[in-house]
Simulated assay, not measured.
Amino acid sequence: MSAEISKNRKARHEYHILDTYEAGVELKGTEVKSIRAGKVNIADSFARVEKGQLFLYGCDIQPWETAGSWFQHQSRRPRRLLVHKAEILKLEQQTAQKGNTLVCLRMYWKNRRVKIEVGVAKGKSITDKRHALKDHVEKREAQREMQRFNKGH
């Protein structure tokens, strides 16, 4: 069972997602409490392979109000992502190709642990975005027409 914490809706609009990976997140105690309270934003987050490890940047986890100042965490600090070494090597090869990047797609709970879905992505052009939006609108209108037709019969 996985309960979604946060989702990056902008990512699927801005990028073609080529492949997805699941990664654990190394967190502090106050960060977990803030995530449980829903004070997390992954809209601008991305991952990068550095020195054989995978790090998450731009993930905004707000400080927990009731913690003392010595227990607080920085809201936008780099966080280490926990994946197998073979996956790190694959991700490093895929991001070495021109135009590919690692984008955070969603954050969710899995067996009482916080997981991040990271996608290998390639940027869309403006025309691709327009076509995707046009297809989405057409599908929505067709679905409405079908519902209206089925409601009458």
Score class of each variant (00 low, 15 high):
Ile35Val: 11
Ala142Pro: 02
Arg148Gly: 00
Lys115Ser: 02
Val32Thr: 13
Gly38Val: 05
Gln53Asp: 07
Ala47Ile: 00
Ser2Lys: 14
Glu22Leu: 06
Ser69Met: 11
His73Leu: 01
Leu105Ser: 13
Met107His: 13
Arg12Val: 11
Gln74Phe: 05
His153Arg: 14
Gly123Val: 09
Ser45Leu: 04
Gln147Ala: 08
Ser2Gly: 08
Lys151Phe: 06
Lys151Glu: 02
Met107Arg: 09
Glu26Ser: 13
His84Gln: 11
Ser34Trp: 03
Arg106Leu: 03
Ile5Phe: 07
Lys10Phe: 09
Met107Pro: 11
Gln94Arg: 06
Thr66Asn: 15
Arg106Tyr: 05
Asn111Glu: 09
Glu50Asn: 07
Gln74Ser: 12
Gln93Ser: 03
Ser2Cys: 03
Val114Pro: 04
Ala121Arg: 14
Val49Pro: 06
Ala47Gly: 15
Ile88Tyr: 09
Glu92Ser: 08
Ala132Val: 10
Gln94Ser: 04
Gln93Phe: 00
Glu87Gln: 14
Ala86Phe: 08
Thr95Asn: 01
Ala43Trp: 09
Arg148Phe: 05
Ala11Pro: 12
Gln94Asn: 02
Gln97Phe: 10
Val32Gly: 14
Ala23Met: 04
Pro78Ser: 11
Ala86Ile: 05
Gly99Ala: 03
Ala3Asn: 14
Phe149Cys: 02
Ile5Leu: 10
Gln74Gly: 11
His84Glu: 06
Arg113Thr: 00
Gln62Tyr: 04
Ala37Pro: 01
Ala3Asp: 10
Met1Thr: 08
Glu92Met: 01
Lys115Asn: 03
Gly68Cys: 01
Arg48Lys: 15
